[in-house]
Design a protein around this nucleic acid. Structure first.
Length: 427
RNA sequence: GUGCCUAUGGUGUAGAGGCAACACAGCAGGUUGUGGUCCUGUUAUCUCGGGUUCGAUUCCCGAUAGGCACCCCA
């Protein structure tokens, strides 16, 4: 006997759950289109090397679900969209009118251990702007991200957008002397900063010292990480004030505030993000619900990624919310939407086996009128038919039996009100 | 890869070392043309393997599956 369980880390989508997902996706589409973004899709698989090149060490490594095709080529089920969309856009980049604003909603696989908010198969919205290095592109992408959340009318203080800049971070790190460290040590420094809010301060200091950083450098890092705002940072480390990273963050933050997002946005030095390809501004949307102690989604600028496809000067900025974390956000704040499969569903039971042919004709007629008709397949008594209609939550029941046939009619019964309408049906 | 927790009908739960209980859902009927109520019947090798015991679904060990937290990542 085979198991009824779906494969580990995947889930079955029964209509009820799927209706919720569809409602979320259609809201996402609505907002993306409002910003003039066009929908695209890439293949489910890519050459495995595409991910090995630039995805994080786990996502592009042991978490990659790869296999050989008949020609011995090594393919991988996509663990993220960014490399694929970069590949796609690289093909058309030179001839396309820029900026290119693209979005997609697709599923992905990562060989992780499933837990709350994380599955092996998951769905993501990916929104990206290519061909503009303008800060207005960063701004628009973040505005879109905020509107995606706001579309669900979340309560006050339920989420926030935290911003940082890889440029600012790198400038700070070079000030702290991290440039003199080995690549490996530098990576450990960055990892440690990523954990700033998670691990104890003593532990952090030990880790930083082990990389060979001087205490002057560690002091700079501490000042940076403890900054509560850009103004605070400018005061603590004045030399950073004139840096590119500071300027881009300052500009984007000011504009977001001018646009009315002042309650949701903040500078956060601990936003690092795992993928290697990020280069400029990075950001994460935080769910502030205590049950969801993690970022809902994130993104940033990744100008250098297209180099793996031989493209130089390929500005790109984007982000990707996942279905699972997003659903948890909506669920926790009690704002989960849903849509029905049918605007209205009609149930046509077979009330008399003598009317087999006529009932089929009637179903056909109703469908030609554009109605959604769920037809009963076996003979049912009236009370059973209505009972079934009740449980299936149909809106209307078509009543057609001998009495109706003789009068040349059928009835449409409204299940909510009990009201019946008589229609002509001569056969 | 590491740690902790859990496993009983279709679903959700109770139970106790000695006949496995309840609710809901399903199906059939009470009711051969009008539903949501009510009533009756029906639905279980208590995940698998081993151990302790006169006796284990219950206690112990292992496997498997699931959950949660790390790692990592969105």
């Amino acid at each position: 006997m085979l198991s009824l369980k779906e494969p580990k880390g995947t889930r079955d989508w029964f209509p009820e759950e799927l209706n919720i997902r569809r409602a979320i996706f259609s809201a996402w589409r609505r907002v993306c289109r409002r910003y003039g973004f066009e929908e695209y899709l890439s293949p489910l698989v890519e050459s495995a090397d595409v991910y090995r090149a630039k995805s994080g060490e786990d996502v592009g490594g042991k978490e990659l679900l790869s296999f050989q095709d008949l020609g011995g080529r090594e393919l991988a089920i996509r663990p993220e969209m960014t490399p694929s969309v970069t590949r796609m856009v690289s093909k058309i980049y030179h001839s396309a009118a820029k900026p290119i604003k693209y979005f997609s909603i697709a599923n992905f696989m990562r060989n992780e251990r499933p837990q709350r908010g994380r599955n092996r198969e998951f769905w993501q919205l990916n929104c990206d702007i290519f061909g503009s290095d303008s800060r207005r592109a960063d701004l628009e992408v973040m505005q879109l991200a905020l509107d995606l959340v706001l579309e669900f009318k979340p309560p006050k203080n339920s989420f926030s957008l935290a911003l940082n800049s890889r440029n600012l971070l790198n400038q700070m790190l070079s000030l702290a002397g991290a440039d003199k460290l080995s690549e490996e040590s530098k990576m450990i420094v960055v990892r440690t900063l990523d954990k700033w809010q998670k691990i104890k301060k003593e532990e952090i200091l030990i880790r930083l010292k082990e990389t060979g950083l001087k205490s002057v450098g560690i002091e700079i890092i501490k000042k940076f990480m403890d900054s509560s705002s850009l103004a605070d940072l400018a005061e603590k480390i004045p030399s950073l004030k004139d840096s590119l990273g500071f300027a881009e963050l300052d500009e984007v933050l000011i504009k977001l505030k001018q646009l009315g997002y002042q309650d949701f946005v903040e500078f956060n030095p601990a936003i690092i993000r795992g993928f290697d390809y990020y280069s400029g501004i990075v950001f994460e949307m935080f769910d502030k619900h205590p049950a969801n102690n993690r970022a809902m989604f994130g993104g940033g600028r990744y100008n250098g990624l297209a180099e793996i496809f031989g493209e130089k000067n390929f500005p790109a900025v984007g982000f990707a919310p996942g279905d699972e974390t997003f659903r948890l956000f909506l669920e926790s704040w009690n704002i989960l939407p849903t849509v029905n499969c049918f605007d209205k569903l009609y149930f046509l039971p077979l009330l008399d086996k003598e009317l087999d042919r006529e009932t089929l004709v009637l179903a056909d007629l109703l469908r030609r009128e554009g109605k959604n008709v769920f037809m009963g397949l076996d003979v049912q008594k009236m009370s059973k038919a209505l009972d079934f209609a009740d449980k299936k939550n149909v809106d209307m029941v078509i009543i057609f039996a001998q009495a109706e046939k003789e009068k040349g009619e059928y009835k449409i019964k409204n299940m909510a009100t009990g009201e019946e309408i008589i229609k002509k049906f001569i056969i």
